[in-house]
């Protein structure tokens, strides 16, 4: 009885201790919208600590439209455009010692970028729900670094620029890509930690006839969604990993799709996996 009382007292004290941490949020909106001028390029850096992140294509003729809704008691907004070097930095950054609140649905960043100017992206986001549609942009290069998230990166329509490289560094996350073919990037690099990861290589690869992808995953499941109209070669190596070849033919140590030799576009995947599973799904 004495122990039960102590535990009860401890719980009450803990609740009292947690109470002050759950203060009301003070939301603030900061937005910056800029018209297209003489810009020949745009380097975009997105840093978003927590909340809901949405990136898309601007349809109104602006260079960019950025809207940040954030908890001003815990975060600081980043909204800085430099005309001199054509860089845009946008996002929110945590204020020291104020982490751990749930910002889902309240804190958000919406960024729309012009498809008329060549764009490079450096996107970092932490505990966020993210929906990134980079389709239709004049994309040169993109790097996405994310921590614990539920994120989707899609290319709803083909990009218009010459994309050299697309890089994803993913921590513990439910991470999904859609229609990577529309990115028309020459090379993709993917590093995943823990979680459910889905890479969808369908889409219109356009003039890119031999896209390559280096994929490294740790714990977790990796699902490769492969288009049937593209020849696919998978070189896989791993430790304690399973690979569902799903109709692929093993030849010279690698796995090939049945249409590999006749396909115009040949997709080469180098997959490294440790303690995870690699599944293939055709579409």
């Amino acid at each position: 009885m004495r122990i039960a009382t102590r535990i009860l007292v401890a719980i009450v004290l803990a609740v009292i201790g947690i109470g002050p941490q759950l203060g009301a949020q003070t939301m603030r909106t900061v937005a910056g919208n800029r018209q297209i001028g003489s810009q020949t390029e745009l380097d975009v850096t997105v840093e978003f600590a927590a909340g809901r992140l949405t990136i898309g294509r601007d349809e109104t003729g602006m260079l960019y439209r950025a809207k940040v809704v954030y908890d001003e008691e815990q975060f600081e907004p980043l909204l800085d455009y430099s005309a001199a070097d054509h860089t845009l930095r946008v996002g929110v950054d945590g204020i020291r010692g104020t982490h751990g609140k749930d910002h889902d649905g309240k804190q958000e960043l919406r960024l729309d970028v012009t498809p008329k100017v060549p764009v490079t992206f450096d996107i970092k986001f932490g505990a966020a729900k993210a929906d990134l549609d980079l389709g239709g942009l004049n994309l040169r290069r993109a790097e996405v670094n994310t921590g614990a998230t539920d994120a989707t990166v899609r290319f709803s329509t083909p990009t218009t620029g010459r994309c050299d490289e697309l890089t994803f560094h993913v921590g513990a996350a439910q991470f999904k890509t859609e229609t990577l073919g529309n990115s028309r990037c020459q090379h993709l690099e993917f590093m995943g930690g823990v979680g459910g990861l889905t890479l969808d290589f369908s889409g219109d690869w356009g003039g890119v006839t031999r896209p390559t992808a280096d994929i490294s995953v740790g714990l977790g499941s990796l699902t490769l969604r492969l288009p049937r109209n593209v020849g696919v070669q998978i070189d896989i190596s791993g430790v304690f990993s399973s690979f569902d070849r799903s109709g692929m033919i093993k030849r010279d140590g690698a796995y090939f799709s049945p249409n590999y030799d006749t396909a115009t576009t040949k997709l080469v995947l180098n997959v490294k996996s440790a303690l995870g599973s690699v599944d293939v799904a055709w579409r």
């Binding site: 603030r28 910056g32 010692g97």
Partner: peptide, 28 residues
Amino acid sequence: GRGFDVNIAPASRGVGTVANNIAGLIGM
């Protein structure tokens, strides 16, 4: 030569931060 800078320093941030610090200390 730069874009429009938004004034991001709320007037009450100092008080809010101190209150947060104290609340955090008490919570700890």
